[in-house]
């Protein structure tokens, strides 16, 4: 979806303001939201793409709050969307009826190791890769209403295949609950002037990770 989340190249957000000696969390509630979210992911309540799509669907004015405010809103939404709680329970702040069995059970100290590092998104391929290193490709001009990971700022532009990452879970399908639908994944590099025009920084090169369905031969 062409949402507020797709920010590459936008103007108007001001300066980047690094914070000296920044704490991991700015308030205990942020850590609690992070933990709740990660735990629900670890028990398989929703996948990472469904989680991202949940954030993208927040109204722009809610999106434009803070990172953990978005995570909180997403978590409340996803609990209801995927049947792990009802809206009246979110409003009441407590459970009013029994929970639903999650694909990987309950999150306990025994499965803390699922949190410390990421799993693999690699999947076996069902067809050979369509593109090879060095190929010129065009990012398709697509504007799906659902979740996609092809940012607007590269759509329609020519780039070069720089890396091949094997076949991986296709977010557009996984977010829609349609399974992994593995697709070849490429790093595609663009020239800054192709993306931003003739007066762009001539030393700039930008790459995105692009799944094969996002690309067509140049």
């Amino acid at each position: 979806m062409n949402g507020i989340h797709d920010m590459g190249g936008m103007d108007g957000f001001g300066r980047v303001e690094p914070e000296e000696s920044e704490p991991v969390f700015h308030g205990a509630w942020e850590g609690k939201v992070m933990a709740a979210s990660r735990a629900m992911g670890a028990i398989g309540a929703w996948n990472i793409d469904q989680g991202r799509y949940g954030i993208e669907q927040l109204a722009p004015q809610r999106y434009l709050t803070s990172y953990y405010h978005r995570w909180l809103a997403r978590c409340e939404w996803a609990l209801v969307e995927y049947g792990y709680a009802d809206a009246d329970e979110i409003a009441a702040g407590r459970s009013l009826r029994p929970g639903k069995a999650a694909p990987r059970g309950r999150f306990t100290l025994a499965n803390l190791d699922r949190i410390g590092n990421r799993g693999s998104y690699a999947r076996p391929s069902s067809a050979p890769a369509r593109f090879a290193l060095g190929d010129r490709v065009r990012a398709k001009n697509i504007n799906p209403k659902g979740h996609t990971r092809l940012p607007r700022y590269v759509r329609g532009h020519l780039g070069t295949v720089e890396r091949l990452h094997g076949c991986q879970v296709f977010p557009d399908s996984a977010a829609a609950g349609e399974g992994d639908n593995p697709q070849w994944l490429y790093t595609v590099r663009f020239d800054g002037r192709d993306l931003w025009g003739a007066d762009a920084d001539p030393t700039l090169r930008v790459s995105v990770e692009a799944f094969e369905p996002y690309l067509e031969p140049a």
């Binding site: 709740a36 735990a39 629900m40 792990y84 979110i90 459970s95 929970g99 306990t108 100290l109």
Partner: peptide, 13 residues
């Protein structure tokens, strides 16, 4: 509220 629901419904310790 979020944490209470996760715990009471048995999703997380």
């Amino acid at each position: 509220a979020l944490q209470t629901i996760l715990v009471e419904k048995g999703y997380a310790d």
